[in-house]
Design a binder for these strands. Structure first.
Length: 737
RNA sequence: GGAGCCGUAGCUCAGUUGGCUAGAGCGUUUCGUUGACAUCGAAAAGGCCGCAGGUUCAAGUCCUGCCGGCUCCACCA
């Protein structure tokens, strides 16, 4: 046995050994355990967050496999719609190109190629981490069979009245040139200015109502001024009219609950086209929606003298003019939170636009019911509350995007005029298509318009929110379809555990539950395990700009994969942030080293002895029965931790037991007798070591396998080490899924 | 405005349904090993478990309030 374990040279061949034994394939028999890997985005390489989640998953999977479950870990990769498009556009920008320079076809193909390359990279990195997934079942969100089901789901939702197309207020990202769902918008607190502006009364132009606004450039789009119905100051004005400054258009003064009496002057300008609250007020009071800012970020023709200006230039001009007219009362500093694009950090422009929406309430109802009935367990439990809280206030989900990267929405339009105004603007090349305006939702392109027989229906140029396809991931990856369940689906659905980060509880987990129930009538997974974020040594969030990121690849090269894996897991509370730094990783390497050396010692002593295969002794009746009993007590305790998914605690206890009980006590106590050919002592050491190797294996698969292989080479140990791979050894504890 | 979390050794953090003589890693001190250990072992120092009340035979653990930090959600003009 070598004096040291060399992860750098040993790991790759150990991984090959597992593949050779088809270890990662589910066995035919036994109870089933399945875990669908959250697909990493195919637009970058492995970071420490990937390492954490995939390690946690691999631990659960390896434990289940060792405990005798027919175990499937299904890997996948995500095309990651808007995120990938932003990443790829940045690459293009370095060559001074935009997606429009390439055109849709070329862009799509180049992006596809880019994703394929990234996919290969990340898969090889996952293998380096020791991930025991069944790579033959690897899925990509753009695989034809996956897209097929996703499209069908859209059609079915539409048939069931759960998808509709409507003009509503959306989040428009001027940089990405697409709308976003609410969950893709980040709110940041910003210092801004609050302008107090006089609106003259129509019937008495010497009298004014003063409103407060942060966006004077949208004044031309005002269609009302609103006050709170209980505000005594303004009671006499309600029902009368004011003149909108800059364009001199009369608008009504209305009363609405949404207006806060205490804020500003208690009177607010209502701009339904550019503000979510105002949009709702507009709906309630049947107000017109006038657009001041176009999707091109320029002021529209309805904005008087501001027309044609960019919105940033329009504001100072508006202020200047108001001031000149003597209508600007004062300016105050204000702190308020403003939405930004999660991907490119550009400030969101609220707009009214015709988009596809999912009517979410009916789906949410079922998803809440399932959780309340205990069909899905949350680990840690506190996320159940967060889930329920979110679901109770959920809003309809906008699923159409104007980006190019991703599958297109299966809606077909008879003629250019049926497209939304935004789509018309963005797709002038389709302009020649004439038609009756009919819309068909179907997976395949209709041969002709069912109404007017036009043979050239055009497809909706928009793509799906990438999360629409992700929300169906557990179903699509297992081969679900709307006709006949596949073998994998029958065998492994619902999956046992969904492990992912708590930061995508709403955007992904909640939606998978809704879609799973909708598509199959069953929950997609029985347990949700949510892990926390990774921080550095001093508890800081890792970020490139702070320069405190840890590159898992470098760590693995330097300290070995096992050191990284155990450092990410040991002693970490459930769902809590993990602090990882070089010292913790070193501690991991020490542990790997300790495992190797303890094994080496036992191996050498065993080799020197007269031990032969038949010398295995029943330890429960030996003079060492107390040691064995203590070991069994530990196993019980350990079993409890693992069944509660407390891997941080479990691995900590395991380390302690192994190091300070087995190495420091048991080995030391039995050393002399073992040297003196006490075969019972030797087989005791061997038996204990074998259990420790098995227990450590899910956490530190490489060093444990390497040791196991050494023992396998000597047939004298074959009764105690009865299987070829440590992973095939009967796990000394029971798991209950 | 709503929801959730955290505050335990110098640092980063564990501590499950209340039973703790409060733990780990790293760091510090002393001694010992270098024939399993790019070390390892034995021992030690170091904690009003944020603060104040309450429940209890018993509270780091449950309840209330306060102080400090964080996260998420929300229609703060």
């Amino acid at each position: 046995m070598d004096k040291r374990f060399q992860p750098q040279t040993a790991e790759a061949s150990i991984y090959q050994l597992w593949l050779k034994h088809k270890l990662f394939k589910p066995k035919d028999r036994g109870r089933r355990f399945s875990l669908i890997m959250p697909p990493p985005n195919a637009n970058g390489s492995l970071h420490i967050g990937h390492a954490l989640f995939v390690t946690l998953e691999d631990i659960m999977v390896r434990m289940a496999r060792m405990a005798g479950y027919s175990t499937l870990m299904l890997p996948g990769v995500d095309h990651a719609g808007i995120q990938t498009q932003v990443v790829f556009e940045r690459l293009l920008a370095k060559k001074s190109k935009s997606r429009f320079d390439l055109g849709y076809q070329t862009f799509y193909q180049a992006c596809f190629k880019f994703c394929q390359d990234q996919k290969e990279t990340i898969i090889s990195q996952f293998k380096k981490l020791g991930v025991s997934a069944d790579w033959d079942r690897l899925k990509f969100t753009l695989d034809p069979d996956i897209i097929d089901v996703v499209l069908e789901t859209f059609v079915k939702l539409h048939q069931d009245g759960l998808i509709y197309r409507k003009d509503r207020l959306v989040n428009w990202c001027p940089r990405c040139q697409t709308v976003l769902s609410d969950l893709e918008v980040e709110h940041k607190d910003l210092k801004d200015k609050l302008y107090y502006v006089k609106y003259p009364l129509v019937d008495k132009p010497t009298e004014f109502i003063v409103i407060a606004t942060t966006r004077p450039e949208t004044i031309p789009a005002d269609t009302a001024v609103a006050v709170n119905p209980d505000d005594k100051r303004y009671k006499k004005y309600v029902g009368r009219q004011v003149m909108v400054p800059l364009i001199n258009r009369p608008v009504p003064i209305i009363a609405d609950e949404a207006v806060e009496i205490k804020f500003g002057t208690g009177a607010v300008k209502v701009t339904p086209a550019h503000d979510p609250v105002d949009f709702d007020i507009g709906q309630r009071h049947n107000l017109k929606s006038i657009r001041a800012i176009g999707f091109d970020d320029e002021m529209t023709s309805l904005t008087g003298e501001l027309v044609g200006l960019s919105k940033t230039k329009a504001r100072p001009l508006a202020i200047k003019q108001l001031d000149k007219l003597g209508l600007l009362v004062k300016v105050e500093e204000i702190n308020h939170s403003v939405g930004h694009c999660e991907r490119c950090k550009t400030r969101i422009e609220p707009m009214v636009s015709l988009q596809w929406w999912i009517k979410i309430r009916p789906l949410a109802q079922e998803a809440v019911k399932a959780v309340n009935q205990g069909k899905i367990k949350f680990v840690p439990i506190r996320f159940k509350k967060q889930y329920l809280n979110w679901m109770s206030q959920i809003k309809d989900w906008c699923i159409s995007r104007q980006i190019w990267w991703g599958p297109k929405i299966p809606a077909w339009y008879c003629g250019f005029d049926a497209l939304s105004p935004l789509q018309q603007m963005m797709n002038p090349n389709l302009k020649g298509n004439k038609g009756c305006g009919h819309i068909v939702v179907s997976k395949a392109k209709p041969k002709k318009c069912p109404k007017c027989s036009n043979p050239n229906m055009i497809q909706d140029p928009d793509t799906f929110d990438t999360w629409f396809s992700s929300s169906q991931w557990p179903m699509t990856t297992l081969g679900f379809n709307y006709r006949q369940p596949t073998d994998d689906f029958k065998a492994f659905y619902p999956t046992t555990i969904m492990e992912t980060g708590y930061d995508i509880l709403y955007i992904w987990v909640a939606r998978m539950i809704m879609m799973g129930l909708y598509m199959t009538g069953q929950v997609p997974f029985k347990t949700v395990y949510l892990h926390g974020l990774i921080r550095d040594d001093s508890g800081q969030k890792m970020s490139k700009s702070k320069g405190n990121v840890i590159n898992p690849i470098e760590i693995m090269d330097k300290y070995g994969t096992d050191a990284l894996r155990i450092a990410l897991i040991i002693g970490v509370g459930q769902g809590e942030a993990t602090s990882v730094g070089e010292t913790k990783i070193k501690a991991g390497r020490y542990l790997a080293n300790k495992i190797w050396n303890a094994s080496r010692f036992v191996f050498l002593i065993g080799q020197k002895s007269n031990l032969v295969a038949k010398d295995y002794t029943d330890l429960k009746d030996s003079q060492y029965k107390d040691i064995w009993r203590q070991h069994e007590l530990f196993l019980k305790d350990y079993e409890k931790e693992v069944n509660k998914y407390r891997f941080g605690q479990a691995s900590d206890k395991l380390r302690h037991q192994f190091w300070h009980r087995f190495c420091d006590k048991t080995i030391e106590d039995l050393k002399d007798r073992a040297y003196n050919q006490d075969l019972v002592a030797i087989s005791l050491l061997l038996s204990l070591l074998r259990d420790y190797l098995a227990l450590f294996h899910p956490f530190m698969p490489f060093v444990t396998e390497a040791v196991w292989q050494v023992f396998r080479q000597d047939e004298r140990f074959s009764l105690i080490f009865p299987t070829e791979l440590v992973a095939e050894f009967k796990y000394p504890i029971k798991l209950d899924y």
